[in-house]
Design a protein around this nucleic acid. Structure first.
Lengths: 338, 338
DNA sequence: GTCTTGCTTGTAACCGGTTACGTCTGCACA
DNA sequence: TGTGCAGACGTAACCGGTTACAAGCAAGAC
């Protein structure tokens, strides 16, 4: 009985005078269904307004048609681009994307477990999930780690260390800066940890010492503003600030000039990520271009490819490490082309 | 048989020597199950590592245990706060949140339809979904509109028009500004449309005309930077800029000083939303505090309450309009307490 | 005319929970 | 001892698709 709800396969089958198997075959474009029958079924679907139930097919296929993405937070253009990259691939495959921001949750570990129960695969940003939990989950379903390193997993990342080394060297060699300071968390996020390491590499190579401990607050714009205020209050401004990401750099850019510090005249600034705003702020921001969108889409492709595999007992993905290229973008904030 | 996959109710039932019904009752804390049996079942669950399948219970309950959120984009702290608000309520109810950014998708309408098929209810940001589509979806499942108006739906919003009127009046009355210009899209987003209307209200009340057309680019930080560059290039700076939101204001703040324009000395700036960064940037940003988190949590509560209702044929939610309070926050960027 | 062969279509079991209804047990009471 | 009743638990149907296998049928080979 069509009852009160949506039509089901059986309704369509009855209406078209065929069996449910045939209806199912038509929805899957199975070529064995002959022209006449096929048209009749399609007409019935149209007439009844039939759409396959996600719930029903999910059970039958043992698949959620959902991809999980675990990020520290939801704010910020970096994550927006990452999600967009993942979603563009997922949409293609008729898969929904479920995002989890762990920093928003007091019960992050529980939340990740929950997410794992309702998705077919996970994309995890480095630093959001403890390694052991990550390993345990990877036993059960495909996991790809983004912007992080792990010997037993599939990882998609950039070589942040080398890029940061190069950019820092530019400040030293091209602009003669000798007192450099790092802004941004240096642990927790493998991504920024690598950048900090590259920063130190370059200083060591030039025989310089850090001009003070890294200014550690967080990785969002507002922490850049806090860092700027702290530096200004301390009174001992370095020649250049190397920010862990562009967001922090923007926070600095929206604060220091208001406090009477000119950029790059009094202090040079560089960021990391090359967000859209980097080319528009004033001064324009020197940074490292990262293929964030591609990071997301590549990760999604790897996960989805794995979910498509046979229905046999799940086997963890063989480890793999994909390193996507970066490119330094020299603009005004470091002192170039002012 | 236990086969290769996860244990099912039948596995637990066999292991505990009871029926599947009893197992199901135990997972639901049904008090009719007696102590001894109950303990035995719990022990078996523990022993087998049983977790109910989301797929199976979803089918039986006809529920996805998922809440959909439709936003224009994913970037930006405003949406992050909104999602966080919704997620905090959803997590409580064991419901996942599925976010869709329509501006990222060329096939937004299709995507919304898809989302509606896999969620139990929808939270929709005003301006993202055409009114007729919204109405059609509301016939099928609970929908709450956030930051928008609609006579037939449940809406959760703030009175942006009144707030913008008040803030604009402050610029005119307290600081004597007479040449004011609006920055931000004035259509598409009902939210910013209302703010623009309030801006005009205040000017009209003061007998002033707008100092030029609104600078329309978009609603993200980078468009604020573009607006700043455009204004600077035009050379005819107004006394004050009223930005449609804080993000735009930050874009301006990260650009104008670098171009030699002091804030608020040369031009005053106000925003809207009171993001975290507003109190930290320099100058600190005068804005309107909005309970964005509450907007999200309230919307989620309304949707979830509706999904919990009987399994009888779905009836659209009765229209309702919830207006949450706002509060002006006067800081340095308008010229106050400099 | 019978037997293959090959193609289209149908039957029914299954995915993993949920739950209406029925059964069984034990106890109180007549 | 028989009857009624309530509480604890089991049976089996169902949610809406999918699919292995079987069945039906027509055309071609002999």
């Amino acid at each position: 009985m069509a009852g009160t709800g949506r039509p089901t396969v059986r309704d369509v089958a009855r209406h078209a005078g065929v069996s449910v198997a045939t209806v199912s075959r038509v929805t899957h474009d199975d070529p064995v269904v002959t022209g006449g029958t096929r048209d009749r079924v399609l007409a019935s679907m149209q007439a009844l307004g039939y759409t396959p139930s996600v719930l029903g097919s999910g059970l039958a296929y043992q698949r959620h048609h959902t991809l999980g993405v675990v990020l520290p937070g939801l704010g910020g253009p970096y994550f927006a681009a990452l999600i967009q990259g993942a979603e563009s691939v997922a949409a293609e495959a008729g898969v929904a994307v479920n995002v989890l921001g762990t920093h928003l949750r007091h019960d992050a570990v529980q939340a990740v477990h929950q997410l794992a129960l309702r998705t077919d695969g996970l994309i995890v940003q480095g630093g959001t999930v403890p390694d052991d939990l990550l390993g345990a989950i990877a036993e059960k379903l495909p996991v790809v780690l983004v912007a992080g390193e792990h010997p037993d997993l599939v990882t998609v990342r950039t070589d942040g260390r080398a890029a940061a080394r190069g950019l820092t060297a530019h400040l030293v060699e091209a602009h003669g800066h000798r007192r450099l300071r790092f802004v941004g968390a240096t642990h927790g996020s493998p991504d920024t940890t690598a950048r900090y390491a590259g920063f130190r590499d370059a200083l060591a190579a030039a025989g310089l010492a850090e001009h003070g401990e890294p200014v550690r607050h967080g990785l969002e714009a507002r922490y850049g503003a806090m860092a700027a205020r702290q530096l200004h209050a301390e009174g001992d401004l370095p020649d250049a600030l190397v920010c862990a990401n562009d967001e922090l750099a923007f926070g600095v850019l929206a604060t220091l000039p208001g406090l009477g510090v000119a950029i790059p005249r009094d202090v040079a600034i560089v960021g990391f990520d090359d967000l859209d705003l980097a080319a528009l702020a004033s001064p324009t921001l020197t940074t490292v271009h990262q293929p964030v969108h591609d990071l997301g889409s590549t990760a999604a492709e790897l996960v989805l490819a794995a979910t498509r595999r046979s229905r046999e007992p799940f086997a963890p993905l063989p480890p793999d490490d994909r390193v996507l290229p970066t490119r330094p973008v020299l603009r005004e904030s470091c002192g170039c082309s002012t």
